[in-house]
């Protein structure tokens, strides 16, 4: 990994650790192995959403060309959400693709994902089945999402 990517990730790692959000248990980052090329993220489900109470794990892969290219992020915890694949955890979010900007950080990415969980974009779906349900049967959607949260994301309690 080149210098600039390593330097950035080291600083961003510290930034998340020191952040208020960490203190409020809403986001967290851990290293995977010794290199800074792969990290593990955690987001708390936002309040007043079907995801409340759940802890969602993320796989974060930092490319060699970071921060000129965005990190590759995927949900490791299964989640029922129109913009996240219920099978693979792949995320459809503009800032992780063409709207990435070099000044964004791990912290802003995690907070954006948290915001996405609170406000889905069903017109730009990743998972068509979930998106259809979200638009046509919002109540069933809310129940399903809440059920998935309890089953897959409820086991971890924030310390």
């Amino acid at each position: 990994m080149n210098n600039i990517a390593t330097q950035r990730i080291k600083r961003e790692f510290k930034e998340v650790i020191k952040s208020e959000e960490l203190a409020k248990c809403s986001i967290k980052v851990d290293l995977v192995g010794d290199s800074y090329t792969e990290l593990k993220g955690e987001i708390a489900g936002p309040p007043d959403t079907p995801y409340e109470g759940g802890i969602f794990l993320l796989e974060i892969k930092v490319p060699e060309t970071y921060p000129f290219n965005p990190p590759k992020v995927r949900f490791m915890t299964k989640i029922w959400h129109p913009n996240i694949s219920s099978v693979t955890g792949a995320i459809c979010l503009d800032i992780l693709k063409d709207q990435w900007a070099a000044a964004m950080t791990l912290r802003t990415v995690l907070l954006s994902l948290q915001a996405l969980m609170a406000a889905a974009e069903p017109d730009d779906p990743q998972d068509a089945v979930v998106a259809k349900q979200y638009k046509e049967y919002p109540e069933i959607f809310a129940k399903t999402a809440s059920h998935w949260t309890n089953v897959y994301a409820g086991g971890i309690i924030c310390s």
Partner: peptide, 8 residues
């Protein structure tokens, strides 16, 4: 005084 890209 820091660069938002490299954070140096």
């Amino acid at each position: 005084l820091l660069c938002p890209i490299c954070t140096g």
